[in-house]
């Protein structure tokens, strides 16, 4: 069964159509990358999936259950299962790394402090961040902050992980370390929806790549096909621009 199924998803901001009848299904263990120009609706699509913003038409199902139904009436139930990491990290600046990571497990998932801290430290050492458990976000580099943000979301054991341009705010030399984590997660079978401008990474990690423009999915194919023989002229133009920018 599909883990996430999006059908006819339509959203307006005021009178502007931002998502135009999107259909997308993501199977368990699958990694789907969304690419497309800025403003094409990628972030909005992710934000609809975990109800950070409301949508106007269509349905979104998680494991066959509508997120608008009774089951997810309280959107916290949805957030327990669908995690998101943002471009701007959004770590809590007044908490140290350990507290950032354990806040949701303790307060939302009712795990004891001791247990959640143990788990957090495990994750931190897994991602080479063990020594920063007591640091505050402002003492970390962007790459380290983003790794903490990823760990913070992983600590809630989500069934689906969504990543919104998580390397876009990082210096080039820090990007690799963050992407490495995501590749490891993909290898472990994490279901992911990834918005990215790193085409090399998308090619490597994705099972399927979707090209968005004007709130629509214009083309959808495995990366080997989409990157080498894009069918839609708009996709070809977009990829051409990316190649010219030296990112493929």
């Amino acid at each position: 069964m599909d883990r996430v199924r999006i059908a006819n998803l339509t959203k307006y901001y005021g009178n502007t159509l931002v998502l135009d009848a999107i259909d997308l299904a993501v199977a368990a263990d699958e990694v789907v990358c969304l690419i497309g120009a800025s403003g094409s609706g990628k972030s909005t699509l992710l934000r609809c999936v975990n109800k950070l913003v409301p949508f106007d038409h269509g349905t979104i199902e998680l494991d066959g259950v509508s997120i608008d139904g009774e089951r997810f009436k309280n959107s916290n139930e949805l957030h327990k299962r669908v995690g998101i990491v943002f471009q701007a990290f959004n770590l809590f600046p007044h908490m140290n790394v350990l507290d950032n990571i354990t806040l949701a497990p303790r307060k939302v998932h009712r795990v004891s402090r001791r247990e959640s801290e143990e788990h957090a430290r495990e994750l931190l050492s897994l991602f080479g961040m063990a020594e920063f458990a007591e640091s505050y976000p402002e003492q970390l580099s962007g790459g380290q902050q983003q790794r903490v943000a990823i760990i913070r979301t992983l600590a809630t054991n989500p069934d689906v992980l969504m990543l919104d341009e998580i390397t876009a705010a990082l210096d080039p030399e820090l990007i690799g370390g963050v992407l490495k984590i995501i590749k490891d997660l993909a290898a472990q079978g994490m279901t992911m929806i990834i918005v990215t401008h790193e085409m090399g990474f998308a090619r490597e990690v994705a099972d399927r790549v979707c090209f968005l423009e004007g709130g629509r999915i214009l083309e959808e194919a495995p990366p080997s096909e989409l990157f080498s023989t894009p069918e839609h002229p708009r996709t070809q133009q977009f990829l051409q621009r990316i190649i010219e920018a030296g990112r493929l």
Binding site: N76, F86, N90, F92, L103, A104, K107, V108, A149
Partner: peptide
């Protein structure tokens, strides 16, 4: 910053 609310909400906090 709004991102703080979004992050907290996305983590499941009420």
């Amino acid at each position: 910053h709004d991102g703080q609310r979004a992050a907290a909400k996305a983590l499941g906090l009420s």
